[in-house]
């Protein structure tokens, strides 16, 4: 029992993290309930995807996992894999925005000053080039050895690093996996653009992962300086960390490409059958 508790409790307690996840879970659950009452509840698998994604992100940020993420390079890479490529992907795959809109407090109308203040920022971040650059740029930025060293020493920078990866991951995948046909709103990238975004971000990351795996020894010496969670040679740690930067994100890109392809086919079928109907 004691050990179970040890695994579940955070290494560093963060009230902000608790508040964020409680709010996200609460708003989503309430939104689903309201949508169900209106007869447009999200499907079971979409709900499952949301909860699984949220749970995974919470687990790597606010349980014992975070301790290993701080003192093992490859565990840190798994943490970012979950935050940026897996948990964020599952959350976005759930298409959670309708539920959030419905579940958030009623005062957050489109005219609320906070919503209005955030809109221009959201529009900039949704530009395909900006979103893609940010998505792969953040991976590179936090892996610059000097930057990485200081992020692992300073609690504030460490939090900034993890949260920027998580939030950016959700934003990027929301754009890629948006199930609405692209022409419905002006700001949505088309399927071809999404395909390009996926591969433009995947290739640099694949090269970075391969470089860490096969490249110079002891790129990230902070884990030797500060001590590892358990004895492991710096070389093994770096190779494993490199592989987790290299392979699984590439696989997520392949998966996302298939989903985008499926959406494109579905829309073109819907389009051609609509044309066919008009003809008859």
């Amino acid at each position: 029992m004691n050990t179970l508790l040890e695994w579940l409790l955070p290494y560093t307690f963060s009230p902000g993290t608790v508040a964020f996840f409680v709010l996200a879970a609460g708003w989503y659950a309430r939104g689903v309930r309201r949508l169900r009452a209106e007869g447009r509840a999200p499907s079971g698998w979409r709900q499952l995807s949301f909860w699984l994604g949220l749970l995974l992100c919470y687990a790597v940020l606010h349980t014992r996992f975070d301790y290993f993420g701080q003192y093992m390079f490859f565990m840190h890479r798994i943490q970012h894999l979950v935050l940026h490529h897996v948990g964020a992907f599952l959350i976005a795959l759930a298409n959670p925005l309708p539920a959030f809109r419905s579940g958030a407090p009623q005062r957050f109308t489109p005219d609320h000053p906070l919503v209005r203040a955030l809109r221009p920022l959201a529009l900039i971040l949704q530009q395909p080039a900006v979103a893609a650059l940010l998505f792969v740029g953040l991976v590179f930025f936090w892996l610059i050895p000097e930057i990485h060293f200081e992020a692992m020493l300073s609690h504030n920078r460490y939090m900034l690093m993890n949260w920027s990866m998580f939030l950016d991951g959700v934003l990027f995948w929301l754009l890629i996996l948006d199930p609405r046909p692209p022409k419905q709103t002006e700001h949505m990238p088309g399927h071809g653009v999404r395909f390009a975004m996926l591969w433009a971000t995947a290739f640099p990351q694949i090269i970075l992962g391969a470089w860490i795996t096969l490249g110079p020894a002891e790129l990230y010496d902070v884990y030797s300086v500060c001590g590892r969670a358990w004895p492991m040679s710096p070389h093994t740690d770096q190779v494993l960390g490199g592989v987790f930067t290299w392979i699984p994100p590439g696989m997520m890109t392949v998966l996302a490409s298939l989903l985008v392809l499926r959406m494109a086919l579905r829309d073109s079928e819907a389009g051609s059958s609509a044309t066919a109907q008009r003809r008859t």
């Binding site: 290494y11 560093t12 301790y67 701080q70 003192y71 692992m152 020493l153 300073s154 609690h155 460490y158 500060c226 001590g227 590892r228 969670a229 358990w230 004895p231």
Partner: peptide
């Protein structure tokens, strides 16, 4: 150790 972002373990 946590305050100075380091750790230790016993073999």
């Amino acid at each position: 150790a946590k305050r100075y972002r380091t750790t230790f373990s016993h073999g």
